[in-house]
Each structure stands twice: as C-alpha cells, then as structure tokens.
C-alpha cells in the first residue's frame, strides 16, 4: 500500500470518477480487505461488518468528487469513512450497552485473544507486532483510533489521569514507529 501510493491513488481517483466496473474492481480488490479488517476490528461482528462495508463503498463511490487530494491520501480518506461508519454503529443504542462492559480494561486482553482466533493465519505481521507492542500502548490506540473514544473517555475507561492519556498516545505511536521500522 505504500509503494507508488501517490501515483496509483491519483490514477484511482481519476478512474473512480468514471464509475465503471473496472474502477470498482480495482478499488475493491485493493482496499476491501483493509477496510473490512478495520470495520471488523471496530465492530467485532461479521454480519454487521458486511453491511457497513457495503455502506462504506456506497459512500466512497458517491462522494469521490468531494475527495480533495490536497488534504490527505485517498487511503486516509477511505479509512476515515470506514472508521466513522463503524464507530457510529458501535455508538448506536443497540451496540452500546453490550460494548460498554466488554471494553473495560480488565477484559481487554481477553477480547483481543478472542479476536485473534477469528483472524486468518496470514496475519503473522500483526501477531508479531502485537507481541512487541506494549499492552498499555495497544489499549490507547484501540480506544482512540478504533473505538472513537475521547481523551476524557479513555482516562475514565483506563482509570488514569487525563494528562497521562496524551503522553501514552505519543509513546504508543513512537513505539509503533520503532516496530514498523525494524
């Protein structure tokens, strides 16, 4: 996803505006897996995730004209659409009650291991990364990026001072950077 990103993204945006099958095939084949993975990671429910994936593709398809390359990568834009759609669903009334108990810090790791069972074996990169990434770092990334929590909500959820949340966010991404580079 990183090699020649700029070029392929520019071409993809141009072809998406034609709205033809070829453009869709390219979009789907290259991004559906990543977007679906993020949606599953957020919602943890396969049936719902498929619906959201469809909703996300409809949004991308219809709003491609409003994508502004000057404001960021196409991949960022698409990931944000997927995250927002999934987090909105997560925060809707039905989902909420269930998840509030599930995401307390105590059973976070229990949840993670349950999720990792459902993941396919080709995710060796992720498994290796998760072995190295500190638990407290993974928690803040999960809660903020994948669950859409605010700093205040994270502080409350993990029972740490608000100031610590920001420090931990920074440390988490620094560690992620180290791991990615090595």
């Amino acid at each position: 996803m990183t090699a020649n990103t700029q070029n392929t993204e520019t071409e993809l945006v141009a072809s998406l505006k034609n709205k033809d099958r070829q453009a869709f095939n390219y979009l789907y084949d290259n991004y559906a897996g990543a977007l679906y993975g993020v949606i599953i990671k957020i919602l943890d429910k396969q049936e719902v995730a498929s619906d959201i994936l469809q909703e996300v593709f409809v949004k991308i398809w219809r709003n491609i004209d409003s994508y502004d390359a000057g404001r960021g990568r196409l991949y960022t834009w698409m990931l944000n659409i997927a995250r927002n759609a999934a987090i909105d669903t997560l925060r809707s009334s039905g989902y909420n009650q269930e998840k509030n108990t599930q995401y307390s810090s105590d059973n976070m790791s229990a949840h993670e291991s349950r999720l990792s069972i459902s993941m396919k074996t080709d995710h060796i990169g992720l498994k290796q990364l998760l072995l190295v990434l500190k638990e407290e770092h993974r928690q803040v990334i999960d809660l903020s990026y994948f669950k859409g929590y605010t700093q205040e909500e994270i502080a409350k959820e993990l029972d740490i001072p608000l100031g610590t949340v920001k420090t931990r966010c920074r440390k988490a991404l620094l560690q992620l950077k180290d791991i990615m580079k090595s």
Binding site: Y28, S50, L53, L173
Partner: peptide, 23 residues
C-alpha cells in the same frame, strides 16, 4: 502513515459474495 500501516495489518478478506453484492 504508521498508524494506517498498523490498521492495515488487520486486513481480512470479506465474504466471497460481497464484491458482487456491493457492485
């Protein structure tokens, strides 16, 4: 980009019939 690389590690193939359904 680092965060997105991490998010990409969670990639998972959607169910087989999704592509036609979405199209």
């Amino acid at each position: 980009e680092q965060l997105e690389q991490y998010a990409t590690l969670y990639s998972q193939a959607p169910p087989d019939d999704m592509k036609e359904q979405i199209w």
